[in-house]
C-alpha cells in the first residue's frame, strides 16, 4: 500500500514567512513536498473562511504563518490572526477537524531553518492523523 501523502496549505505572509520559505529553498534545506504555498500580504488577511474552504476542498492541514508579534509590516495584522485562531480552532475541533491540522506560527524572514523544521514536523503530524474527512465518514464530535 502506498503511504498517505497529506496535502498542506500554507498561507505565508509576504514580508516574513514567505521570505523565510523562499530562503529555505535557496539554502537547500530538506523539505518534504507536501506543501502548497499561498502568498498573502499579511497573516491578518487570512479570513477563517479561507481556512475552512481549504479543509472543505480537501486539504489535510492548514498553516498560517506571519511575522513575530511587534514585527508586523502593517503594525498589528498578526495580532488579528492570533485573535481569530482560538475561536477558529475551537469551531474546527467541534466539526471533527483535529487540533494539529490547523497551526498558526510566527516565522521571521531570517528563520528559514525554522520554516523547514516546522513544515516537516507538521507534515509528519498530519500524516499520522490520516486524511482529513470531516464531512461524512466520521461522526461529529460536538459538545454538551
Amino acid at each position: 500500500m502506498t503511504r498517505f501523502e497529506p496535502k498542506i496549505i500554507a498561507f505565508l505572509c509576504n514580508w516574513c514567512s514567505y521570505v523565510a520559505a523562499d530562503a529555505a529553498g535557496v539554502s537547500r534545506f530538506v523539505q518534504k513536498p507536501n506543501v502548497r504555498v499561498i502568498r498573502v500580504f499579511c497573516s491578518g488577511m487570512v479570513d477563517p473562511s479561507y481556512v475552512i474552504k481549504a479543509f472543505a476542498s480537501g486539504a489535510d492541514g492548514v498553516l498560517v504563518a506571519g511575522c513575530h508579534p511587534g514585527d508586523c509590516h502593517y503594525l498589528a495584522g498578526n495580532i488579528k490572526a492570533l485573535r481569530r485562531s482560538f475561536l477558529l480552532r475551537k469551531l474546527l475541533s467541534e466539526l471533527g477537524v483535529e487540533e494539529k491540522r490547523f497551526r498558526l506560527e510566527w516565522i521571521a524572514a531570517s528563520e528559514s531553518p525554522l520554516y523547514a523544521k516546522l513544515m516537516n514536523e507538521m507534515i509528519e503530524d498530519v500524516r499520522n492523523l490520516g486524511p482529513c474527512m470531516p464531512s461524512s465518514q466520521k461522526p461529529l464530535k460536538g459538545v454538551a
Binding site: 479570513d47 474552504k53 472543505a56 508579534p69 492570533l82 481569530r84 482560538f86 475561536l87 477558529l88 469551531l91
Partner: peptide, 23 residues
C-alpha cells in the same frame, strides 16, 4: 461563504485584547 467562519471572524475581531492568554 460559510456562516461559522464568518461569525468566528466577526466575533473574534472584536476581542478587546492583544494578549494570547487573555484571548
Amino acid at each position: 461563504f460559510d456562516p461559522g467562519a464568518k461569525m468566528v471572524s466577526a466575533v473574534s475581531s472584536t476581542f478587546d485584547s492583544t494578549e494570547a492568554s487573555e484571548i
